[in-house]
Simulated scan of single mutants.
Amino acid sequence: MKNRELGKSGLYVSAIGLGCMGMSHAYGAPADKREMSELLAKAVEIGYTFFDTAETYGTTENPHDNEELLGNALKPYRNRIVIATKFGLRFDTESGKIPYPLITDSRPDTIRRSVEGSLKRLQTDHIDLYYQHRVDVGVPPEEVAGVMADLIKEGKILHWGISEATEEVIRRAHSVCPITAVENRYSMMARHYESLFPVLEELGIGFVPFSPLANGLLSDQYTASSRFEAGTDYRASMPQFRPESFAENRELLGLVRRLAEEKNATPAQISLAWMLCKKAWIVPIPGTRKFSRLQENAGASDIDLTADEVRQIDKALDTMRMSAVFGGTAIKS
C-alpha cells in the first residue's frame, strides 16, 4: 500500500489505516482474540502500518480489551508499524443508556496514569501518536499540550493529536506543542469538518477520518432488513440504519454504486478514494473484522479520482437528500 505523511510532521503511515475499535467495542460482542490477532498480522502483511486504538475500547468487564489485543498481536511487528492510542475519556456505564455517555478527564495526573497504562498494555516503550480522545472543557488546551510536550521529551510518545477538535482548540494547543494529526468524524454523510481543511493545511497537520464509511453504511452491504444486537452493537440505534433511512439514502447509495461501476471498484473503495483524493494528508481509518474487507479497503489507495471528479461528487452531495447520520454520543462534564 502507498504511504502518506500526516501533515508536515515527518510521520509516515499507510494511506489507509485500520481502526481497531470494532474488534472489541460497539459493533457487537468482542470478536475472538485469536481470529483478530491473525487478522492484524495479515493487515501488516498486505501493507497496513497504521493501527488505531484507545484505552477505552473494550467492555464493562475489560475496558482495555482492544489495547491488550493489539499489544499481543502486533508485538512481533512493532518496529514496522505506527500505533495510535488515546487518553482523556471514559464511558458512563452506569447511565443505563446505549451508547454510553462520555465522561472527559484530561487533567495532567490522569494523562500520566493513562500513558503508563497504555504503554504496558501495548507492550511498547513508546506510543507513536497519542490523541486526546475528546476535548475536556475543564482543562485548557494549552495545559494538555504542555503535558504532551513533556511526554515527547521523555520519549514516551513521539507525536500527539486531538480527536473531534475545533479550530480554536487546535490553534491554542498547536501553539504550545505542534499537533501531528486531528482525528474527527468524516464521511460523505458527515462533511462539517471540511471547514477545518484550510487550518490544517496552514499548520501542517494531518487529518484522520474515523467512521469514513458512515459506520459501514457506505460499504453498501446493508439493507432495510439488516438487524443489529441492541446493547452491544451501536448500529442498532444509529439513524442511518433505520429501515426508512435506506429510502432516504437511495440517491447517495446509487451515486457510489455508479461510480464504483465506472472505476471497476466497490462502493466502499469509492467512498474512501473520494477523501484520499481531496488532500494528500488525509488518512482514513475504516474498521473491520473480516480479511476480505481489509483487502477491499486497502485497494482504495489505488483508485484515482481527478480533481474535477471530486468536485462533481461534492456538488452532488451538497444537494442530495440524506437521512440523519450518527454523530457521536453525549459528553458529560
Score class of each variant (00 low, 15 high):
21 M>I: 00
27 Y>C: 10
30 P>W: 02
32 D>W: 07
39 L>N: 00
44 V>D: 04
51 F>A: 05
56 T>F: 13
61 E>Q: 12
64 H>M: 09
65 D>Q: 14
67 E>Y: 08
70 L>T: 11
70 L>K: 06
74 L>T: 01
78 R>Q: 04
91 F>M: 12
94 E>W: 13
100 Y>C: 12
103 I>S: 04
104 T>Y: 03
104 T>A: 15
104 T>R: 12
111 I>C: 01
116 E>Y: 00
145 A>P: 05
148 M>R: 04
150 D>P: 06
151 L>W: 01
153 K>F: 08
154 E>V: 04
166 T>M: 01
166 T>G: 15
176 V>D: 08
181 A>E: 11
182 V>T: 04
183 E>H: 10
186 Y>V: 01
187 S>F: 02
188 M>Y: 06
191 R>A: 11
192 H>D: 15
196 L>K: 04
196 L>M: 05
198 P>K: 08
201 E>I: 01
206 G>E: 06
213 L>K: 06
220 D>Q: 11
221 Q>S: 15
222 Y>K: 02
227 R>Q: 15
232 T>F: 02
234 Y>M: 15
240 Q>K: 02
245 S>V: 11
254 G>Y: 10
255 L>I: 11
255 L>A: 05
256 V>S: 05
267 P>L: 04
269 Q>M: 08
270 I>C: 06
275 M>G: 02
276 L>N: 04
277 C>Y: 02
281 W>G: 12
286 P>R: 10
286 P>H: 02
306 T>H: 00
310 V>S: 01
310 V>D: 02
312 Q>S: 13
313 I>D: 00
315 K>G: 11
316 A>N: 13
319 T>F: 12
320 M>C: 03
323 S>H: 03
326 F>A: 05
333 S>D: 14
